[in-house]
Design a protein around this nucleic acid. Structure first.
Lengths: 339, 339
DNA sequence: GATAATTCCGCCATCGATTGCGTAGAATTT
DNA sequence: AAATTCTACGCAATCGATGGCGGAATTATC
């Protein structure tokens, strides 16, 4: 049950633990330790299966080589892919990540943040809930390096990694309009969510630019869930005014809407066209592959990591950066030209 | 930039840090500290935003309240759901989880395990690759509590959380047979993977029990990927012997196979029936909702957590436990009765 | 032979929190 | 008044690794 520590090794070879530490950290030359001693230590450490104690090292160094990553929903492929890339990039730099899932719960987010700070993580990558302003303030108050992604918090100066929601949405809506659609539905997320607000604003802007009016029943805000997409779609399709196209604000809503459309006995894209935010694996699996707005997931992850590490490494006061990435309209086959 | 420590508080109130520690850990009564002092300390700690330093505590207590969770592919919904439930359950018990993604890479798994042990995690939940035996030995050698899930390693005694692959597969195959299918394809994962081996064996057994022969081109082992499913399905469907039903060993393969079937111009379930392992969100989204074998994800997660914590808490030597959970055949509409 | 220059490494404080053991002073008992 | 019992804490060691400063021992130089 006894674990090998520096002292164990030091005692056997009859040197001090400083010497052992220096050797095992490859600093023996700098400290003028003879090759003979160094070799003895190296060999013995291997024989004893010595593994450094990171908690001790962290305490002493005031650095844990740990990054906290907080997302809203780990089961959403958008986030799980982000996590995958973030983990990979950070691991390559010697960091470990602690992943937290808020499930869009503000209290939970707050408590997770406190826990991460208690653990003295070297930085936090956070996909905040819109109302997270106070939680975020705590992080800043503690001077913990922070990168926010996927959500803009009004009035909160910080480093951000975001996509250009406006351009992405407008490209999609204009594409629909170019195909002759005039009755376009918007099914979005929480009305206070920044992504949703921006996407909605862009939708309105595009419609306005084309002098198209928006039927008031054609806008549904709600949760980013399958159910919301499904319910909204069926409600609209069962009303007397039936639109020709749908725009959905995320992958879950899109899936729900598709299902709703199909359950109403309508075909995509023959009866209804649809475009949504987020690409995902099964987008190509529906009877007609879905046209989507792809977010550059890997790039977002890498940018977030790079931004964070630049804060972690240097104590410099770079001005806050917002990395605004472009989306891509992936045209498949879920819209129909009705001109 | 200075952080509040116990000493900071102690100095201001003129007590020792022991006293502060005892108060903040709610042990002041036990140590006979007056309520007056206790209150002063509590109030001041709040005023100064004191947050305990977990690295220090971990070092002293030889306990980190951290659990490592290693999965093969975090972007697979099966694992991301497991993680979600594991995280939630452990968080409720005061633990934080470090998530690692091996991507089916053995070296990476080894290196991740070492890193977790260096960090002195209190336990590890591992979804191993089949060849992980040496990696696992390291964990056992270090005496780190361990639960393996989703994969059985031959000859490795340990705590396991598994599903009953045999019963689950047989139920599915027998269901197909009961519908009159005789030509049933098996598209599986890596031939050395225990899940795949068991599922394959069960498939053979069911076929044999029904006195059905297995065409040698009707068995495809490979990677657990969309591509493998797609390629296998199209290859088989383009050959001269066309089967009537497919069995697929996981969600990714199933999706690929479905796409392959559709791309060959065939309909599910009219032309081809299909059943696969793993339930997933989009299973209901295809033209015809997919009949699948559902693994009890939440139960698996909770069992793994419970098992692990029982090892962490007590130093007792409970004999190894294998928690074998039942699957459920979720009948939707991807198979056709051809009797 | 004495001093200077190397070579090689140890001492000890430090990071922050957590107890086991002990004790000063007040209160109470005999 | 002496002895005993409480009350209310403090002291100091400990967890394991790190690094500044210093110094003994050996070799080189004059």
């Amino acid at each position: 049950m006894n674990v090998t520590t520096l002292q164990t090794i030091a005692d056997i070879i009859n040197v001090s633990r400083s010497t052992v530490s220096r050797v095992l950290n490859n600093k023996w030359e700098r400290y003028g330790i003879s090759r003979v001693t160094a070799d003895k230590i190296t060999v013995l450490a291997k024989d004893l299966n010595y593994l450094k104690n990171d908690t001790a090292r962290s305490l002493r160094e005031k650095k844990t080589f740990t990054i906290g990553v907080i997302v809203r929903d780990i089961t959403n492929p958008f986030y799980s892919h982000i996590i995958k890339f973030v983990e990979r990039a950070l691991y390559a730099k010697g960091y470990t990540i602690i992943i937290c899932n808020t499930g869009y719960d503000l209290d939970r987010e707050s408590s997770l943040i406190n826990s991460l700070i208690s653990r003295r993580v070297d930085g936090i990558i956070l996909s905040p809930i819109q109302k997270s302003i106070e939680n975020i303030s705590i992080i800043k108050f503690r001077n913990v390096p922070l990168v926010l992604f996927d959500c803009n918090i009004d009035g909160m100066k910080a480093d951000y990694v975001l996509v250009d929601n406006e351009a992405g949405t407008m490209e999609a809506i204009e594409y629909l309009i170019s195909q002759g659609h005039k009755e376009i539905v918007y099914i979005g997320g929480n009305s206070y969510d920044s992504n949703n607000r921006l996407r909605y604003a862009a939708y309105r802007k595009s419609m306005q630019l084309a002098s198209l009016s928006i039927h008031k029943n054609y806008v549904k805000h709600g949760r980013y869930t399958f159910k919301h997409g499904y319910d909204s779609a069926t409600e609209i399709l069962r009303s007397k005014n039936v639109p020709t196209a749908f725009f959905t604000a995320n992958n879950r809503i899109m899936l729900g809407a598709c299902k709703g459309i199909m359950d109403c006995g309508l075909q995509i894209p023959d009866d209804i066209s649809i475009i949504g935010f987020d690409d995902f694996e099964t987008a190509t699996m529906l009877p007609n592959p879905l046209t989507v707005i792809r977010q550059p997931v890997q790039e977002m992850a890498l940018n977030a990591v790079a931004l964070l590490l630049s804060r972690v490494d240097k104590t410099n006061n770079i001005p806050y950066v917002t990395s605004l990435l472009k989306t891509e309209l992936v045209i498949r086959n879920s819209t129909k030209d009705i001109n």
